[in-house]
């Protein structure tokens, strides 16, 4: 059901049946390391290429989620998945392995919440009993796609991000208990003229602020209705900017406003963190493990996850185009039982 301008309300409140998260060594050594299901220290994940490694991670996260749910891949009525590579090859090839009906999606690093929102929508509408939402990213595949060869010596500015190596998956369905998915606010594509692909935080902050503002207007809620509001990967540069933009719009989010890209690494003890994490997997692995744990243990009751994506390509960046960005938000609620 549509409420307000851009928000979907899921009347049947689809549940998160189970989660799966797989990450690389650097993420495993970060402050959230113990929360992830699988930490894979081999950057190649036993494969021959980086691309195959990312694909393998996505399959591992999907399998883990299904295994934790006590189901099998055949129970999945739909897989909705995406990644950052050209033509979504990680998600597409993983779907070949899965052999289930599949829709590929792309919103750059906002893909995680796009996949979750669409999966919840399908379960809510009765098109699927079980839907599997998944995303992945890999530092080395992203470096090659968007930046330089991995072994090329280049100095990055402090506004740069470190792409998260990992994959996250959710099984969403109807169930008597589990985390509830109640709303999704679909963002509009925003471009405030940031041109440098090294300044993604600043580019994405207005999109995040806009989606959060619209979410409050559509639902009639206040920041205080949430225990935490987390953006996907604005990181240390973009997150304070979004905070300030929201203040200008009249919303003081305070301490409950956090960011998955900030949470995943510790810049004091870890190398090459720059402003923080990014990538489709960043928002997914942090949300599906660390943030969901706070809901399941009853510390939090309701959270808003705002995945942020910079919709540039290496070609558009080279042609000096500015960076259009989008943010999709999903509301998760703790089970009251």
């Amino acid at each position: 059901m549509k409420i307000g301008k851009q928000t979907w309300q899921f009347a049947s409140e689809p549940r998160v049946i189970s989660t799966g998260s797989a990450v690389g060594e650097k993420e495993g050594k970060g402050p959230l390391g113990i929360d992830f299901d699988l930490v894979i220290t081999d950057p190649y994940v036993g494969q021959k290429t980086w691309e195959k490694a990312e694909r393998k991670m996505m399959e591992m996260a999907q399998d883990k989620a299904i295994e934790k749910a006590g189901l099998s891949m055949n129970n999945m009525d739909i897989i909705i998945a995406g990644d950052l590579l050209c033509q979504n090859i990680s998600a597409n090839f993983a779907a070949r392995t899965a052999g289930r009906p599949y829709l590929g999606v792309f919103s750059a690093c906002a893909t995680s919440m796009e996949a979750v929102a669409l999966s919840a929508l399908m379960v809510d509408a009765g098109q699927a009993d079980y839907a599997l939402a998944a995303v992945s990213s890999h530092n080395s595949t992203a470096e090659r796609m968007f930046r330089f060869p991995t072994e090329y010596g280049a100095q990055k500015p402090p506004t740069a991000h470190s792409t998260v190596t990992g994959a996250g998956a959710l099984v969403i369905g109807r169930a008597p208990n589990g985390i509830k998915i109640t709303h999704a606010t679909i963002g509009t594509v925003t471009d405030l003229g940031v041109q440098s692909p090294w300044e993604m935080g600043a580019a994405m902050a207005p999109a995040a602020a806009q989606t959060i503002d619209q979410h409050f207007r559509d639902t009639g809620r206040q920041p205080t209705d949430y225990d935490a509001i987390a953006t996907g990967d604005l990181a240390r540069v973009g997150h304070p900017i979004a905070s300030e933009l929201l203040l200008q719009k009249g919303w003081n989010l305070g301490d409950r406003f956090t960011d998955c890209g900030i949470l995943i690494y510790d810049p004091d003890s870890q190398h090459e963190v720059f402003s923080g994490g990014s990538g489709a997997a960043c928002c997914a692995v942090v949300t599906f493990s660390h943030l969901f744990n706070k809901l399941t243990t009853g510390i939090w009751k309701r959270i808003l996850i705002v995945a942020t994506g910079a919709l540039l390509s290496s070609v558009s960046a080279q042609q000096n185009e500015t960076v259009p960005c989008v943010a999709h938000a999903v509301v998760f609620e703790a089970d009251q039982n």
Partner: peptide
């Protein structure tokens, strides 16, 4: 540049100036 630099874009670029970490 495909997005016309409107007033909103200009304002945001101005707003960003003091909020980007200094390059070393």
């Amino acid at each position: 540049m495909s997005v016309r630099m409107g007033e909103e874009q200009k304002q945001y670029q101005e707003f960003l100036k003091s909020r980007q970490p200094a390059k070393h």
